[in-house]
C-alpha cells in the first residue's frame, strides 16, 4: 500500500499546485481586476473605500454648530493621548452654569487612526474623514484645533 499512498501524494500535490496556478493565471489575464490607483493623476476622481480613515474631524453644520458636549469620553478612549479637550463653563440666560467645549485639540502626528474615539463619542460629534495628504514642513502644524472659531454646541444636545 506504500505505492498507493505515494501516487495519491503526487496526485494531490500536483492538483493543489494547478489550482494555485489557475488563480494567478486568472488574475494575469483579467486586467480589470487591478485595484492599484494612479494616485497623483486621478486626484480629482480618487475612489477611496469607505472604511479608509485619514483623520479625525469635528462635524459642523451650516450654522457653525457642532455636537460636542465636552464630555472628554474621546480623550479617555484614546490609547496614545492624541486628543486634548479644554472645557469652559457657559452661563445660560437663567444663570445656570453648564460645561461646554472650549478647544478640541487633536495631535495628528500621534494618531494611529484606530477609530476608538469615534466609537466612544456619545453624541456622534466626531467622525473619521478620508483626507490623507497631511504632509507639512513643520511638525507643529500637525497639532490641530478641530472646533471652528465662534462655533457653539447645537441646541438640544446634552
Amino acid at each position: 500500500m506504500f505505492l498507493k499512498d505515494y501516487i495519491t501524494d503526487i496526485y494531490k500535490g500536483v492538483k493543489s499546485l494547478l489550482i494555485g496556478m489557475r488563480r494567478t493565471g486568472y488574475y494575469f489575464t483579467h486586467h480589470k481586476e487591478i485595484i492599484t490607483q494612479q494616485y497623483p493623476d486621478n486626484r480629482e476622481e480618487l475612489n477611496l473605500p469607505t472604511r479608509f480613515r485619514g483623520e479625525v474631524i469635528l462635524l459642523h453644520d451650516e450654522n457653525n454648530e457642532h455636537a460636542c458636549t465636552g464630555c472628554t469620553a474621546c480623550e479617555l478612549a484614546c490609547p496614545n493621548g492624541t486628543i486634548k479637550i479644554i472645557t469652559k463653563f457657559d452661563v445660560s440666560p437663567e444663570g445656570k452654569k453648564k460645561k461646554a467645549l472650549d478647544t478640541f485639540i487633536y495631535h495628528l502626528e500621534l494618531c494611529t487612526m484606530c477609530n476608538l474615539c469615534v466609537v466612544a463619542c456619545p453624541t456622534d460629534a466626531i467622525v473619521m474623514a478620508q483626507n490623507f495628504e497631511h504632509s507639512v514642513y513643520d511638525r507643529s502644524k500637525l497639532t490641530k484645533k478641530l472646533n471652528k472659531p465662534g462655533s457653539k454646541i447645537r441646541e438640544g444636545i446634552e
Binding site: 494567478t24 488574475y27 494575469f28 486586467h31 481586476e33 487591478i34 485595484i35 492599484t36 494612479q38
Partner: peptide, 10 residues
C-alpha cells in the same frame, strides 16, 4: 510586469 499582473497591480 508579470509579477504585477498576477498580484493585481500595475
Amino acid at each position: 510586469k508579470v509579477a504585477a499582473f498576477m498580484q493585481i497591480r500595475m
